[in-house]
Design a protein around this nucleic acid. Structure first.
Length: 455
DNA sequence: GTAGGGTTAG
């Protein structure tokens, strides 16, 4: 017996044998079950059945079906059905129906159309609520239009529409994704001040932002903060932390977090394994990756296509990195460059190691060129010096940078604004690294007040 | 008693 027939026979039995009143609620719940299982097709058959039984579908029925269509990427069909319902005027579209369509449009890359629908709502009698605004604000952030999202957010406030933890999560996530930490922090403060408590979703966004930014210690601290405030870290929290560690090449730390999670009695999911397998593949540790892959079925998990394609991709990039590194060291930069472009022609993404090696290689080439220009009687000017110094600073080659700084100052040139701000950045982020101290001494005027703090 | 929004792999 198919699912559909089973549902119908169940409804039949409920009605005749158990004596439960079968009504439109029963059908709506059954339709929703199908839709959540990505089987809107069965849901639509039930719509036919309920008609035959003399029931009239209501707003719940249609909203559930519209959402079911969107869940299986049939948003155009959902929009058609929505338009048909509007034309028939049997069912007055409510805020949930608008919200569902807005979500469908956003999920299919039509945020602009969703915004148009929002305008229609604002002018009509069915006013948008927090959920409609959240859907659009989240989508704007994901489409890199964070400023528009912020504008919409303040407009909501003017209209007195209440804000909840979900809308703050969307905005803070968007702000963090674009490095707008200050605004994100302000948002968080604003939320806490208005008495809204962060939940596990919000904490996960914050942990993600911190660990990706290299602030592992602070991210870990959130585990304690969460627990103290009665919000238990979940699998996503652990996965987020693991992913962050892998991103920075700290696979051992990621494994430690994984073991902590298991000790806490939480069940790792396919994400957990894919993150770790990726981490090992990026380091070309195939044995460890395979070991984890074989462990999955024992936990009742099935690797999906993403697990495998990520593995292949990581290994491919790792192999390219090994070759690029070798050719850079041999000063075969043309070959290294060819390999670098080969990555993108294969649809692969160079990682931070690839870029660092290429920049390093090009910088070495630049250094040679720098020496060569002087030998050929063409003296570098302030622009040349500044660019090369910035390159060395970026490569954390503070010794070379300080030599050139001294040379440049001796020639009567000075550090330009971007070199200065780079040095200031380094001081604020790195503190007073002993090798960096050397640069600062060259950079700072002898009688500067700041020197007292440094010495 | 039933419907719509936010988090982690690529």
């Amino acid at each position: 017996m198919g699912h559909h027939a089973f549902a119908l026979s169940l409804i039949h039995k409920l009605h005749f044998f158990i004596g439960i009143q079968v009504d439109i609620y029963t059908f709506n719940i059954a339709i929703n079950c199908y839709c959540r299982l990505n089987r809107v097709d069965f849901g639509l058959s039930l719509l036919g059945s309920l008609f035959k039984r003399g029931f009239t579908p209501d707003a719940f029925t249609f909203n559930t079906l519209l959402n079911g269509l969107i869940l299986v990427d049939k948003t155009p069909a959902a929009v058609d059905l929505f338009k048909k319902l509007m034309r028939m005027r049997e069912i007055e579209p409510d805020v949930v129906m608008y919200g569902t369509i807005v979500n469908g449009l956003c999920r299919t890359g039509n945020t602009i159309r969703a915004v148009i629908l929002l305008r229609i709502m604002e002018e009509g009698s069915c006013k948008p609520d927090t959920i409609v605004y959240t859907t659009i604000i989240d989508s704007l952030c994901k489409d890199r239009m964070v400023d528009d999202a912020m504008k919409l957010f303040s407009k909501m406030n003017e209209q007195g529409i209440h804000r909840d933890v979900v809308i703050y999560t969307s905005l803070i996530h968007g702000l963090c994704n674009f490095g707008r930490w200050k605004e994100a922090t302000e948002m968080l403060k604003e939320m806490l001040n208005s008495g809204i408590a962060p939940n596990v979703h919000m904490y996960n966004v914050l942990v993600d932002a911190l660990i990706k930014e290299g602030m592992a210690k602070e991210a870990e601290e959130f585990f304690d903060v969460m627990t103290q405030r009665g919000v238990d870290p979940d699998v996503v929290t652990y996965n987020t932390l693991m992913d962050g560690y892998c991103l920075h090449g700290h696979i051992d730390e990621a494994m430690r977090v994984f073991n902590n999670m298991v000790d806490k009695g939480l069940h790792p999911n396919v994400f957990s394994y894919t993150i770790l397998i990726n981490g090992y593949c990026k380091k070309m540790k195939i044995d460890e990756a395979m070991h984890l892959l074989r462990e999955m079925p024992r936990r009742g998990l099935k690797p999906d296509t993403k697990t495998f394609s990520a593995m292949l991709q990581d290994l491919d990039v790792a192999i390219h990195n090994v070759l690029i590194n070798a050719f850079c060291k041999d000063k075969k930069l043309d070959t290294a460059k060819a390999l670098f472009y080969n990555l993108s022609s294969k649809g692969l993404h160079p990682d931070v190691k690839t870029y660092t090696m290429m920049i390093q290689g090009l910088l070495d080439e630049a250094k040679e060129l720098f020496v060569k220009m002087e030998q050929n009687g063409c003296l570098p000017n302030d622009v040349t010096y500044n660019i090369v110094i910035q390159g060395f600073l970026g490569q954390q080659k503070y010794h070379e940078a300080s030599i050139l700084l001294k040379e440049m100052i001796g020639m009567g040139f000075s550090a330009n604004a971007s070199t200065s701000s780079l040095i200031v950045d380094l001081i604020t982020t790195k503190g007073l690294d002993p090798t960096l101290r050397e640069v600062i001494k060259k950079f700072m005027p002898k009688d500067s007040h700041g020197m007292h703090d440094i010495e």
